[in-house]
Nucleic acid binder design. Structure first.
Lengths: 233, 233
DNA sequence: TCAAAAGTGTTCTGTATACACCCATGG
DNA sequence: CCATGGGTGTATACAGAACACTTTTGA
């Protein structure tokens, strides 16, 4: 193999910010490290890129090992490259953003990695520059969810409109008007009424909907103006 | 220095997509390579990340070497990591997106690198995965310019509203209504009327404006709804 | 029968769009 | 004096926001 003689080689890590939704709050899947370095502290789930794998495949591998899930919504959001970000050795980290349905995870696998779902307001300090990554990821989630219908990735296959509303309220940490939300979301044409009712609730049962996956793909890039944008002058 | 024993080290490259605007079309600054590998072919400007520099500093270094400019608008947009993307050796490439005022560049430096400004429709095929990077960068430019006022980075300090309109028309490859454009852009409050007139034009002279830099910073994230979005249902 | 949550409708207002008219300049 | 391009104004339609009333359910 020919080589570039003068250039420096370094480690390439992959770190994953994994968002979930428990019906009330946005949660992060974090690792309580029982390995070195920084044993005992909290971090994102990560690993090193292998010689024979693409970046996206590396992220999928890491997510699969942790959650037992394939076909997760994953997106690359940034690459961190500060000189001393990993004190052990110069390491570039490619950061991925994943949305998973919190109820579909493989409990065993998650437990085996000593991983825990923590809500954002209870997030402990993380190692290295992982806190910055979480901030970026949250910004990104808000930015993207306002323009594209990716919230569905966090919900079960069948869900009610009030559930969906709670999700958006959690993402943006704001209250939304029930009636306007419902009208807007139905007007997108992305929801299919299953005709069934939610039997969890103790009062009036809300209708269960599912995502129209074909339309979802086609409309993914035409979801603009979804969130209200109060106070923008 | 302690080390992670099992992980693989690899090269980290930086590639820059450099956009400019000549008053009519969006242009790309590309290199006709007079060095190996792929000598004689076209590529993006790039280089390897050094042991003692941050990613952003690396990008700035590369851009400075090529254009003689500092304080350019630069943003990291993606990281390419396909196994065989560089046939010489496994290399990760962090891609940066730069907007420069085409008239402020250091002509000498550009010439010395055998770099040329080519408009998008005349772009030759580029080496490796650089074509994909350009596609991503253009998507990103369109995405971002619709939401944030970054077009100004491509114009001289003082510019006319018709110039600015031509810029947006070039970015989105569409015609805009003169009157609505002018009203909208003035309503943002980002433009300051210098009182001067453009003396380039042969007919009625357009007023010269400059950017209100303070407001620009504050309003950077509240520029939503700027571009018309025809046909979105 | 009552409280809590879900479903539906209406009004108002602001903003985007389409379009018409007038003004300045140089050939 | 006229063609070209720049500047300003107005009517209309549509979408978002605010808000009221009715229905369903289980306790």
């Amino acid at each position: 193999m020919k080589r570039y003689p003068d250039a420096i080689r370094m480690l390439v890590a992959i770190d994953c910010i994994i968002f979930g939704f428990d019906g009330e709050k946005i949660k992060l899947l974090l690792i309580k490290r029982n390995f070195k370095p920084e044993k005992g502290k909290w971090s994102l789930m990560g690993g090193f890129l292998k010689q024979d794998e693409d970046l996206e495949d590396g992220a999928s591998r890491i997510l699969y090992n942790l959650t037992g899930l394939k076909d997760i919504y994953v997106e690359q959001i940034m690459t961190a490259g500060k000189i001393d970000r990993d004190p052990v050795e110069r390491t570039i980290s490619v950061v991925f953003f994943a949305l998973i349905n919190i109820h579909e995870q493989d409990q065993e696998a998650v437990k085996a990695h000593n991983a825990h779902w923590l809500s954002l307001d209870k997030k402990p300090d993380l190692i290295f520059d992982h806190d910055e990554m979480v901030v970026k990821a949250l910004e990104y989630l808000r930015y993207k969810a306002a323009l594209h219908p990716l919230g569905f990735e966090l919900l079960p296959e069948r869900f009610t409109i009030p559930q969906l509303q709670k999700l958006y309220e959690a993402i943006y940490d704001m209250k939304l008007d029930r009636r306007n939300f419902s009208r807007k979301i139905l007007l997108t044409g992305l929801l299919i009424d299953t005709g069934e009712k939610d039997n969890q609730s103790t009062t009036k049962k809300a209708g269960l909907f599912r995502l129209d996956k074909e339309r979802y793909k086609n409309k993914f890039y035409s979801f603009w103006h979804f969130m209200p944008q109060p106070g923008i002058k």
